[in-house]
Structures are given as C-alpha cells and as structure tokens.
Design a protein around this nucleic acid. Structure first.
Length: 665
DNA sequence: TGGTGGGTTGTGTAT
DNA sequence: CATACACAACCCACC
C-alpha cells in the first residue's frame, strides 16, 4: 500500500499550535503533505467583509505560511485561487491525494459546503478526516446531549458541556512538517462568476484576486493582497497572526492578577490605548489562537491561585466564562442552522415588528439580504447610527471606533446595539448585525447574531426594561469624555460639562469649543466652523416608545416560526396603533416583505410603499438596499454550482456607504 | 407543579 | 461615597 498523500485544508484554523486536525494529518506520516487554503468567492464577494477584516485574514495567512516554511523550507501555505467545491476534486487527481483533512466548521454555509466536499471526496476515493477544534466542545455533540435543542442559556451550555465530557487537552505543536509533493498543476481554473459583489463599496479598483490563475500573479501560491482585492488599505491598528497572538497571550497570562480575577462587566468600554480586554477575539475567529489552548492556560492560573487562596473569578464573568458564551452561541447556531441568523422562521427568536425588517424569500424561508424601508426616517436613523453621526457623542464615538479600528469593547457593543433596537431607534437587530458583520475584525457569525438577539431581547435575554442610556452609561465609564474626544474630534474642545450632550451647550460655549452643534450629520462644516449634529431624536421619548412596544410585542408573544409570522397574519395582533409595519397594510407574508423566489427579486405582493428604495427614493433617505448577507446566507448564494440566484436588484443598489460618501463630497 | 430566586454587563433616586 | 430599592416585569432552573 502506498504512503498517504495528504491535503490539509486550512480554513478558520490558521495556526500550528493545538490543532487536533493538523495532528491527525501528521499522524498519517504522509509522504506528501500539502497545506492549502482555497480562496473562496463566498468570502470575497458574498459575505460582508471590509478591508480591516480582510487584512486580518491576510496577516494570519502570511504568518502561518512563514511558520510552515520555518518547519520545512519546501513548504508554505499554498493559497489556491478557486473555491473549494470546484477546486478540490481537480486537486485530488492532480496531486494524487489519498487523504483530505480539515477542522470541523460550524456555520450553516460551511456545513453545506463541507458536506458537498465530503461527497466529492467519497466519489474520488479520498479518505476524509475531520476533527473538532473550533470550540471547547464539539457543537454537534453539545446539541445532541441538549436533546437537539439550541443552548439558550449559559447554564444549559454548562450542563451540556459537562455531559459531553472533559474539554480536550492541548495538542502538541508540530516540530517538523513533511515535504509537499509535486506542485505542478495542469488543471483549468474555474473562475467564480459572481452575479453580485457585496463588498463593491469597499473597492476603489477592480477585484483581481482570481484573474491571474490558480497560483496567483507570481505563480507561487502567495496570499492575495488588499490591492488585488481592489481595496483601500486597512485602517485597523490590530494585527493578525499566530505569532503575534501567542506573544499577546503570554503577556496576558504573565499578569496573573488580571487573568485570574478578570470580570468582564467590570472592564471599561471606554478604555483605549490600551483597551481593557485582551483583543483575542479576532484570533479566535480566524483560529490563529486555539480557544482550548486559551481556556486551559487561563484555568491553570485560576487553579494555581485558588490553591494559594488568592482571589479568583469564575464563569460567567471570568475569562473562561467568555469562552463558554462563545460555545453557547456556536451550539445554538449548530442546532438552528440558517434560521439562527434571522427572525423569520427562527423558532427561538421573538417576533417583534421592528422598523426596516428583512425581506424574505418565502419559498426558501430565508432572508434575501435586502430589507423593507417601512419609513424613510428610520432609514436615515440607521445610516446615522452606522456612520457615527447620531448626535449622541457616546454612540458616535463607539461607531467611529468600530469603523476605523474594527474592534470595540463588548459593553460598547451593548450600548450601540440597544440604542439601535429596543432602546432607541426600534430598528431590526438584523440591520445592526449586518453593519457589525462588515466592520468587525472579530466577526463571528454565531456570536454576532447571538449577541444581537441578546441585546434586542429577541432571544437569550429578555429584561428589556434594562435600557442603556447613551448619556448615563458612557458617563459611568468616561466621566471626563476622553473616549469621545479621541473618536469624535469635532468635540475635542467641548468642556466636560457638555461632552455627552453638546447640543445643550450654549452657543458661546460651542463657539469657544470650536464647534457648532447643528444639522443632521451631512455637513462637516458650516461657514468654516466644524459641525457636529444635533441628536437624531429625543432619547427619553424614544425609550418610552420602545418600552411600550416591547411590552406589547412580548404580550403578543410570537416567535419567528409562528404560523402568523410565516403567513403575515401577525399584523392583526398588532392592530393597536404601533407605527411602521405594525399598521398592517404594508409588507407581505411575515410582515417582513417578500422577495419572489429565484430570479430578479420582484415583489409578490408588496405595495408601492414597500419598494420605494427601488424607484425614486425620498430625498432624505437615499436608497440603501445594502445587499446584505446574513452571516448565515441563503443557500442559493453559496459557491455551490447547484443553484444560481439572480440578485440584480440588490446588486444595482447603491449602499449605505455610497450614499453617505456622496453626501460627504 | 407552582412558587421562588437568580440572571456576566440599567437608571435614577433615596438613604 | 456606597448601598438599596423602585421601576414594571422578562425567562428559566430548580426545589
């Protein structure tokens, strides 16, 4: 029998340390070992990925590639410019592959893709080895012991985890790697032909990462660059890569007081340079840091301190607790699949008649990526929120930090998410999740969706009367307003007294501070004076409206998979004068508006109100059909050759970003 | 089974 | 300055 020839497929496990899948591959003692990455058009075109997260990915890939080369000068991370579903069957033959090995992936899209790949491997006679390593416990195992149900609380996750068993111990980092085999590739590249490009807004130039063949412009399987993606340089100061994060982790662990007594709710969302938490989340996302390694290392310190009778923190607030929450969201996603990422047809997400609800393809039961503009004014609110121009300095500082740096503190996320949804604008959490998906370097579909549901009180959490104030909450952490002055420089001269509510500053004080508080965020200057917008609404008024509506929605008690939601008759239950879609005339089944199934996306029964974003938009709310993916996108949009879906309408839409850019000029 | 206490991360006021 | 409580009332685990 001939020796194994192994294709090791790196995905979100961009590391050499503590990788059960990598160990399984090396245990085969292969005669040829190909560490590869498939440059997936799902990621390039069909997921919302801004330059900051792309750069972070590229950093991780380059670092890993160098680490591989250090172990074997003939090897590297071979980046192949083609999606896996078309590429791998060809590679199996070209490189005479006997084994395909990868770490188990968890989100709905990846599961579909991997199922296809495993079928292709079976047909090609290639043995597939899959190991879990992305979460503390295998999420499918957690779901199984939780009776198939999603883990909706941390206690459920802990109970299920205990039943699954001990968290796997750390796997040794390889000290050497086998040679790759022959690298000749006499195969035709199947170039993805995207029908639309979700990241067009981020590109100054043409996207060319596929145009120079499978091995890239220098024929050396190099990692693509942002330039090739046609993107502007990243603006985030945070860098990716296993080497960097292992050093970061060392310094975190060296501070045993910090590590051992960490309590998340006591860390400040307003701290910058340095931040109050450890910035490991993007590394956990890309797998440049193993969550299990992190967990065991922290636990060692906690146990050591416990023995020494030193103070320690425990889940859920401790560092290990944060990793448990991550597992909770992963297992919830594993149970619910695509429906986890949306309200419609989600058995565990409360139905609340938010503004700007997602459009739904009723034949598939999945969101289309578009949304209904039930009220142009709410569209303006969404844009102002997304661009940090709400007129609430605390909110704006956070949103600008997010856009610039790609990372904000967890409590800052709470504050802005509450503000957009149940505690302010009453806009669908799905809109907020999309903006975070674009901008966060640590965007993890399961965690992002889960946290948005949490904050909007649609799942995981329900105490909607606990409402964050855009003024009081910020003051608690940043009484002096330094965080605001850092990210909202218009206000850097504003005295402490008015920094959280600059519109309350008398005009003389505004002049002295070198800023005028005026308008709605469209002008940067008025008559040569720097301008900062007035608040986009009266917060106490909006809070009261939201509380009232949340109470009503809870009383009605519908979930996303309720028959009344699925067929649109939910409106009858909300006939008591709530605004927007709850008035009952607008929107199609589900009240979430309908996108006719497969091609073109014409409305089935939308009234003319439903689609004014397509025709002539109101002056205030230029169309913003941000052709969004859910983090768990609909099936037809995958790289799958099975289905193609027209997306012309969304494609031709300008985006949130575009319309704001135009105004800025 | 129904009552009860707790729930990583609210606010404003009173003591 | 810290602590307690009302606010109006949620879900859920557990006894």
């Amino acid at each position: 029998m001939s020796k194994p020839r192994v294709l090791y497929w790196f995905r979100t496990d961009l590391r050499l340390h503590d990788s059960p899948a990598l160990k399984a591959a090396l245990d085969l003692k292969p005669e040829a070992f190909y560490p590869i990455w498939c440059w997936d058009s799902h990621y390039v075109y069909h997921s919302r990925v801004g330059p900051n997260r792309f750069q972070f990915l590229i950093d991780c890939q380059n670092d890993l590639s160098q680490s591989i080369t250090k172990l074997n000068k003939n090897s590297k991370l071979f980046v192949l410019r083609e999606p896996a579903v078309t590429l791998l069957p060809k590679l199996f033959k070209a490189w005479k592959i006997s084994h395909l090995v990868f770490e188990k992936d968890t989100d709905a899209y990846a599961k579909d893709r991997d199922a296809q790949i495993m079928e292709q491997a079976r047909k090609a006679g290639v043995e597939v080895i899959v190991r879990s390593g992305r979460t503390l416990w295998d999420s499918d195992e957690v779901v199984k012991v939780n009776k198939g149900k999603p883990t909706m609380s941390i206690s459920q996750l802990q109970a299920a985890g205990a039943k699954v068993g001990e968290i796997e111990p750390v796997v040794e980092t390889p000290k050497s790697l086998p040679d790759p085999g022959d690298l000749e590739l006499d195969i035709e590249q199947t170039q993805p032909k995207p029908d639309w490009d979700m990241n067009e807004q981020f590109r100054d130039a043409k996207e060319t990462s596929y145009s120079s063949g499978i091995a890239g412009p220098n024929n050396d399987f190099a990692v693509p660059t942002l330039e090739e993606l046609g993107m502007k340089p990243a603006t985030s100061p945070h860098k990716g890569g296993e080497t960097i994060v292992l050093k970061m982790l060392d310094s975190i662990l060296a501070d045993e007081d910090y590590t051992g007594t960490f309590e998340k709710p006591k860390t400040s969302p307003a701290a910058f340079e340095p931040q109050s938490t450890c910035l490991t989340s993007p590394h956990l996302h890309f797998g440049s840091l193993s969550c299990r390694y992190f967990y065991h290392k922290v636990l060692e310190i906690v146990e050591k301190r416990r023995k020494a009778k030193q103070s320690v923190s425990d889940p859920p607030t401790s560092l290990t607790g944060q990793l448990l929450f991550r597992d909770m969201y992963f297992a919830a996603q594993a149970s619910l699949g695509y429906s986890f990422g949306q309200t419609y047809n989600n058995s565990h997400c409360r139905f609340i008649p938010w503004h700007l609800p997602s459009k739904v393809d009723v034949t598939s039961g999945l969101v289309t990526g578009g949304y209904e503009v039930d009220d142009p004014g709410k569209e303006v609110w969404l844009k102002r929120w997304a661009h940090g121009k709400t007129g609430f300095p605390w909110i704006d500082a956070i949103m600008r930090q997010l856009r610039q740096e790609g990372w904000i503190h967890h409590l800052a996320r709470h504050s802005v998410a509450c503000f957009l949804t149940r505690g302010g604008a009453y806009i669908s959490w799905e809109r907020g999740a999309e903006v975070f998906e674009e901008l966060l370097i640590d965007h993890e579909a399961a965690c992002n969706i889960g946290n948005w549901q949490w904050l909007s009180c649609t799942a995981f959490f329900s105490q909607f009367f606990r409402c964050y104030s855009p003024v009081a909450f910020g003051k608690k952490w940043d009484d002096n307003g330094d965080f605001i002055r850092r990210y909202v420089p218009e206000l850097k001269g504003m005295p402490k007294k008015y920094i959280f509510e600059p519109h309350k500053a008398p005009i003389q004080d505004q002049k002295k501070a070198g800023v005028v508080i005026k308008g709605d965020g469209e002008e940067a200057e008025i008559d040569g004076v720097v301008c900062y917008p007035k608040p986009m609404f009266d917060f106490p008024t909006q809070r009261d409206i939201c509380l009232e509506r949340m109470k009503n929605a809870y009383r009605v008690g519908l979930y996303g998979n309720d028959a009344k939601v699925l067929d649109g008759t939910w409106k009858k239950a909300f006939a008591d004068g709530a605004e927007g879609p709850t008035e009952g005339k607008k929107g199609g089944p589900g009240g979430l508006s309908v996108c006719e199934d497969t091609d073109g996306g014409e409305e089935v029964n939308g009234s003319d109100e439903v689609n004014h974003d397509v025709t002539s938009p109101p002056a205030k709310a230029k169309k913003a059909q941000a052709g969004g993916s859910r983090a768990t996108p609909m099936k037809g949009q995958s790289d799958s050759p099975r289905v193609t879906r027209g997306h012309k309408r969304e494609h031709s839409q300008s985006t949130l970003e575009d319309s704001f850019k135009k105004k800025a000029k």
